[in-house]
């Protein structure tokens, strides 16, 4: 149970960075932490003591595998996370190009 709780702590660190930091790059890093936390929690839930990775090596033996479904769900999500992070960084670059700062309070002040 404590091992799941540390994933929740990583989630809360990411949320802290998103909510309270004023630097845009720090906010992007917070989003990345939330993605890692969710992916890791999925993989940890599917673990079984003494089980092997879900690759069949012999046909006619009983299989003792970890849960393959969380792995299948997370596998695509990792690649998607890279795409969304790149999109977020593109928007951040555009904002920096216009206002010359990463500080969201300054950006709010300079608007209009």
């Amino acid at each position: 149970m404590i091992i799941f709780a540390s994933c929740i702590i990583l989630f809360l660190i990411g949320l802290y960075a998103i909510v309270t930091k004023r630097n845009l790059i720090k906010i992007a890093i917070g989003f990345a932490f939330i993605e890692y936390a969710v992916n890791l929690l999925f993989a940890l839930i599917g673990f079984k003591h003494g089980a092997l990775a879900p690759i069949i090596t012999q046909v006619n033996t009983p299989h003792n595998f970890v849960d393959p479904i969380p792995q299948a769900l997370v596998l695509t999500a990792i690649v998607i996370a890279l795409g969304t992070t790149a999109l977020m960084l593109t928007v951040i670059l555009r904002i920096y190009n216009r206002y010359k700062t990463f500080d969201i309070a300054e950006i709010k002040k300079l608007k209009g």
Binding site: V79, L82, G83, A86, L89
Partner: peptide
């Protein structure tokens, strides 16, 4: 699909230096 997509993301971000 994945390889070409990520490579074009990288190239588009690399084009930023000309815009800046």
């Amino acid at each position: 699909k994945v390889g070409a997509g990520l490579f074009s993301i990288f190239l588009a971000l690399g084009a930023m230096k000309y815009i800046m």
